[in-house]
């Protein structure tokens, strides 16, 4: 693709901010927590050992801090054609309010908080800031994640 000098207009930015995904709800399965902890090689017993976790102040297995990534929430749809198909993850900023426990039902919704463009090493890049809110079955916000996605 030949890279244009500019892509986003004021109007497109205005349309994009506030766009939300459909909600995704998943059951936080014990086996999924253990597999995730194994994949990141974190041997903390509260993620891996039902006996130790039961005896901890949580009273059972909890998920590691970045486990919620695996909920697989949809990205908000851009309200225009997005010709930049290559994607890089720029970073994440997590705020935690309640532990995520095995057996919880977590509902995630993502929303475009900001969008802008920049020219870098790989040409024109579209940088989108997406806020994902993760709520549990008691309608408590368990965590909020602001992630930066880079399209080029």
């Amino acid at each position: 693709m030949t890279t244009p000098a500019s892509f986003l207009t004021e109007e497109m930015i205005k349309q994009a901010i506030g766009q939300k995904s459909a909600p995704t709800t998943i059951d936080i399965e014990k086996g999924a927590i253990i597999k995730f902890a194994q994949a990141i090689e974190d041997d903390n017993p509260v993620y891996n050992d039902e006996k130790a976790a039961r005896e901890s102040r949580y009273g059972g297995l909890i998920a590691p801090p970045t486990f919620l990534r695996s909920v697989g929430v949809d990205r908000p749809t851009y309200p225009f054609d997005m010709p930049f198909t290559r994607l890089l993850d720029g970073g994440s900023d997590w705020e935690y309010f309640h532990p995520v426990r095995a057996g919880d039902w977590i509902t995630a919704i993502s929303e475009i908080a900001d969008i802008n463009e920049r020219t870098g090493r790989m040409g024109l890049m579209i940088i989108t800031s997406i806020v994902v809110t993760y709520s549990n079955q008691f309608d408590q916000v368990a965590a909020r994640q602001t992630s930066t996605s880079i399209r080029y």
Binding site: I40, E41, D42, N44, V46, S56, R57, P64, P65, T66, R69, G91, S92, D93, W94, E95, Y96
Partner: peptide
């Protein structure tokens, strides 16, 4: 991000609470 989560949760111990994690 998960490796950095491991770093801080290991250090804070069983009674620590992670409030924010950014990278």
């Amino acid at each position: 991000n998960a490796f950095l989560g491991h770093l801080v949760t290991k250090w804070m111990g069983p009674d620590g609470d992670l409030k924010r994690l950014a990278c």
